[in-house]
Design a protein around this nucleic acid. Sequence first.
DNA 1: TGCCTTTATTAACCAAGGTTAATGCATCTG
DNA 2: CAGATGCATTAACCTTGGTTAATAAAGGCA
Lengths: 186, 186
Amino acid sequence: MDKFDFDQFLTRVLQHPQFEQHGVESYYKKGEHLFSQGEVCSDVFCMRSGLVKFYFNTLEGKEWIKSFVIDKGVLGTRSSQLLDIASPFSALCLEDTEMIRFPYKRFEEACFEDLELARAIFQFTQWLGVKKELREYQLLCLSAEEAYQAFVESNPTLVDRLTQIDIARYLGITPIALSRIKKRLA
Amino acid sequence: MDKFDFDQFLTRVLQHPQFEQHGVESYYKKGEHLFSQGEVCSDVFCMRSGLVKFYFNTLEGKEWIKSFVIDKGVLGTRSSQLLDIASPFSALCLEDTEMIRFPYKRFEEACFEDLELARAIFQFTQWLGVKKELREYQLLCLSAEEAYQAFVESNPTLVDRLTQIDIARYLGITPIALSRIKKRLA
DNA sequence: TGCCTTTATTAACCAAGGTTAATGCATCTG
DNA sequence: CAGATGCATTAACCTTGGTTAATAAAGGCA
């Protein structure tokens, strides 16, 4: 489960009659938002290509990046999907991005009709949980330098498509500190 | 879903024939481990009373606390349950603790037989996800001082039952730094 | 092409937290 | 009860990262 087969998962989801019927193909340009912090957006986004960042804006006006989704994935904001409340973070396309979106309720309904789909979604949720556990470990236990090294090592292609600024905001430091770390490591 | 009804959830789980049959009542003394970092332990623990901490030991010999479970809850280590690999963290009882434990596979089997149980477990998983999202926000976006204030505010009873050391290890700082923060706030 | 914006780097200075060590206090245990 | 252990606090010094500002390079756009 270290690697999740998104191709297979997306195929299974998108072939389902619920989604063939209610799914809407959407294309986003670099710089466009899928949803913004403070908005309610209960849709599920199935991503076929592109690059998206999820970020928080703090009260002091700073930005910190929660996560990235690159190339393929399934995404949305749980707060809106499950609790029908505003998203605590924003989703912004860093590159042109292809999506198919549909209401979260369709997901739930479809799961009751199709046990195999339910199983696939459960596995996806668990896979996400394992990923989040790793993120928690890195934020809690690693120094900025260690976190940077781990990030580069496990996401080489992603690093090439991001700015220094966004990498720093993901690590929880300033781009200046990241520049110093790179100098130290070189 | 801000508050999850563990009483109701535990009742539903523990009433299920699978668990009545295979559940084992276990009592742990303060200082005993449920499982340790590096061990495989795929059991699910249903906690009826007590206090448990989950923590990492880093390569440099430091300890950082992932989370606490207080009074009632359901716990285990996903890595072992889903992937059958060693747990990346340890679980230690900080107080005498009452548990009912059973193999993870029973959970899965029972879910296929009982859709209501599956639904309850799915809700629990999502609730956990929302909690972890909050933790991620606090680690990424808050200063140590802000994180301490947020922790005290949302867990007043828990704070009273923890040492300064464990609170600090949960926040990602040293107990000395926490002492300084308390002085600053007083 | 030239202008403007964004990005990356570096320097100088400052603030927050880590480290080591000492002290007082509470708790446990024989 | 006495000694030992663990916890909380404080001080002095060090390390790391934040802040402000300046500069140079790269990319977007008219």
